[in-house]
Design a protein around this nucleic acid. Structure first.
Lengths: 267, 267
DNA sequence: TCAATAGTGTCTTTCAGACAGTATATA
DNA sequence: TATATACTGTCTGAAAGACACTATTGA
């Protein structure tokens, strides 16, 4: 029987059955990194792409603006426990991201589901020394919050530790903590690419929306203007293709009211 | 001074300077997951997309075919060391993937560089219990190996523990170990999408190639045929756009020899 | 009735698919 | 000279950019 605090050799393992092997394996201790989910939370307000940042209260990067994030719950993996205590592996990665999203925005799971808040894995950042405390592997996720939920998010002009920043005009990439400038740049790139061949744009408008509102989302994300007529033609195609449908009611403005539409979610 | 084996509270940390905080922090112990890089190694041979799989020698999934992979070196993070020993954080994530690629293919770094073997992060798989031994976060990378390097890879009909499998006709998704079927499916999807707007196809042909050879790569990855004339037109456009250029020599066949071209790598 | 926004139609270019056809090497 | 493969050209339709134009509302 090998020393449980040392690595299992191939020879050790050879004669064991699977159950016995797993028992022996659980006693080992390898160096392991910390793992976090880092949340890139976007919205579009007034043709302007915004990201939610929080001000760090503690070291390191105390006082710097950062994307929110947190550790993944991995149960009792990798720590010493009594032999008769059951091993648990904690929460799925996507669940951790969803939980963090809820905690950081102060929106409950039901609301996030109901408004089809889009949550998707972006990339995993794992350079050594990206966190001075210890080795941290950070799995970045991005979320797209529709503008009508923004007033419910715990972040505003009053909160001095959580705020929406215009990606274009307010974020200072040079002073973001950790490697969060890299994460933000990659996140913007990703949604810029993805808006053309996916339905993520519909996650950044209210449940019913006008042609102009959808166009504003495209313009905010792409950072360019779209010809009104040409965009309408694309919109009409989505209508005939059954991707969207007209919804009852009209959007009241100061002048001519506009028809509203809704996204027909693929079931 | 807080107990170093317990979590630092916000109050503990409040009065410290950054250096003192980092010192106190390093003494803590949180549960941490294991982290691996999982390698999806592709090539195209005879208009057929192939993936490199290895047969597992040990538990779990003993005898099953799997994608190769290995643990990320995280230095001495997260383990108990004497206070006077320096903390190290190990290797970058991308470096770990490159190292694993070299180890699993038996190709040295110089050769991988010289032949522009493409290596890119795919996705991070982090469901709880995806590995019965302990909580494992697996960062999947995919590599594209040009066919002329394939004879140098330690994997062939003779090796019974490492082999190239046709993704279409030979891989049995139902018996792949762990969640590797999911990883493979996502990898194929990714290169299918990416071949249209990136230059990854050039990583799957020799340094100089004919129109037909490049077309074969497209057909293997997309799983469809391309009209010869239409594909040539696309090819001509790449030529006039300066993406590729003609190379000296011709490809000898049984009939009319074909011109060969090379990819002009953006510098 | 006028200003402002909603909404339509046309011309042009680019590019992909379908497919007919020409050119040139070897056997 | 036959045939296999390399390579070119034409017709059509889908979709985007540029831009002129009409429709409908509130003030």
């Amino acid at each position: 029987m090998p020393d449980p605090a040392r690595k299992l050799t191939h020879e050790d393992a050879q004669g064991m059955g699977e159950a016995e092997f797993l028992q022996a394996y659980s006693q080992q201790r390898y160096p392991r990194p910390s793992v976090t989910v880092d949340m890139l939370i976007f919205t579009v307000i007034d043709t302007d792409l915004k990201v939610l940042l929080i001000k760090r209260g503690g070291h390191p990067f105390q006082g710097s603006w950062c994307m929110p994030g947190g550790f993944v719950d991995v149960g009792n993996s990798g720590i010493d426990i009594a032999p008769d205590v059951a091993r648990t592996q904690g929460e799925d990665l996507g669940v951790a991201a969803f939980r963090e999203l809820g905690e950081e925005t102060n929106l409950d799971a039901e609301l996030l589901e109901k408004h089809n808040v889009h949550l998707e894995q972006l990339y995993t950042f794992g350079k050594a020394n990206r966190d001075p405390r210890t080795r941290v592997i950070g799995i970045a996720y991005y979320a797209l919050v529709p503008p009508n939920l923004v007033p419910l998010v715990r972040a505003g002009d009053d909160a001095d530790d959580a705020r929406w920043f215009s990606v274009e005009t307010e974020v200072d990439l040079d002073t973001l903590g950790f490697d969060h400038a890299d994460i933000l740049k990659m996140g913007v790139e990703r949604i810029r690419g993805k808006i053309d061949y996916s339905s993520i744009a519909f996650s950044l408008v209210p449940q019913t929306f006008t042609v102009v509102e959808l166009r504003a989302v495209y313009e905010a994300i792409k950072g360019r203007s779209y010809d009104s007529g040409n965009f309408r033609r694309r919109f009409r195609r989505m209508l005939t293709d059954g991707i969207i449908e007209q919804a009852p009611g009209k959007r009241q403005t100061t002048t001519k009211p506009a028809k509203v539409y809704r996204f027909k979610r693929p079931s």
